[in-house]
């Protein structure tokens, strides 16, 4: 199986340069204690040449590994009066680091198993899970993302070309109360939905400012399951949970 073509997609597999090196060593089925630098380096170059697109982070890690390997090689090439002691041998240092790292990897897959077991057991202190702010995979989005979403939406509304007759004043405080009331009644507020319901640009704008105030006061939190997914606003519940 040619793994080199698909690891661009599977970035999750790698955590860092050590991970990458470990992977290459494993793929070659080489004993970790005997890292053939030339082979591994050749492997990198082959992979690099195959690629049409470049992922900068990944390539930076490649470079770090390559540099490390070249450093080791150069150390080995230098003539020395006395052979190096074990703990100064750059290969040994690398091997030790890799072994340490390998243990961490093993431990983390073990923790994953434990986590999966535990997630099946519901405990009272973890209830209600959905309302907890640290729903683990969510991304807390920045105010800029929120602002951008808002303006995209407003542009869209503008294109609909609906004319409204003015006459209503919106107060920030009222809007904040409205948002909170909505959140008390519903689990969460869908950002786009909520603002599309606004009658006018003024209303949406005041609501948006209210929302920003609430986020700033850490009363609510805006989360997203992943990028390009709908933004959802939740009440922060931590205090309430621990007080119960």
């Amino acid at each position: 199986m040619d793994a080199s073509t698909d690891y661009q997609v599977k970035l999750e597999v790698f955590q860092g340069p050590l991970d990458l090196l470990l992977f290459l060593i494993r793929k070659k089925k080489i004993d970790i204690h005997d890292i053939p630098i030339a082979t591994v380096t050749r492997e990198y170059l082959k992979y690099l040449n195959q690629k049409e697109r470049i992922n900068l982070d990944r390539e930076a890690e490649f470079l770090l590994i390559a540099a490390l390997l070249i450093y080791i090689k150069s150390q080995m090439l230098l003539p020395r009066e006395k052979p190096l002691e074990d703990e100064k041998d750059p290969r040994q240092i690398l091997v030790n680091r890799l072994l340490d790292y390998q243990r961490i990897k093993a431990a983390s897959s073990l923790l994953r198993e434990k986590e999966e077991e535990e997630l099946l057991k519901w405990k009272r202190s973890f209830l209600p899970h959905l309302l907890q702010e640290d729903a683990m995979d969510y991304i807390e989005i920045s105010l800029f993302d929120l602002g951008e979403s808002f303006f995209v939406l407003m542009k869209k509304k503008e294109r609909e070309g609906i004319k409204t007759i003015k006459g209503k004043e919106y107060s920030l405080e009222e809007k904040m109360k409205e948002i909170l009331a909505f959140l008390e009644a519903n689990e969460f507020l869908d950002f786009l939905d909520y603002f599309s319901q606004a009658e006018s640009f003024e209303e949406a704008l005041v609501s948006f400012l209210g929302l920003l105030e609430l986020i700033k006061a850490r009363i609510v939190i805006a989360l997203q399951e992943s990028h390009f997914q709908p933004i959802k606003v939740w009440l922060r519940r931590k205090e309430r949970l621990t007080n119960n």
Binding site: Q15, I104, K105, A107, S108, L111, E115, L127, L130
Partner: peptide
């Protein structure tokens, strides 16, 4: 509870925790 799945820790988080 109307939950589809519980959030799991990312692999980076797990690795850091084991370290």
């Amino acid at each position: 509870l109307k939950i589809e799945r519980k959030g799991k820790l990312s692999s980076a988080a797990l690795e850091t925790l084991s370290a």
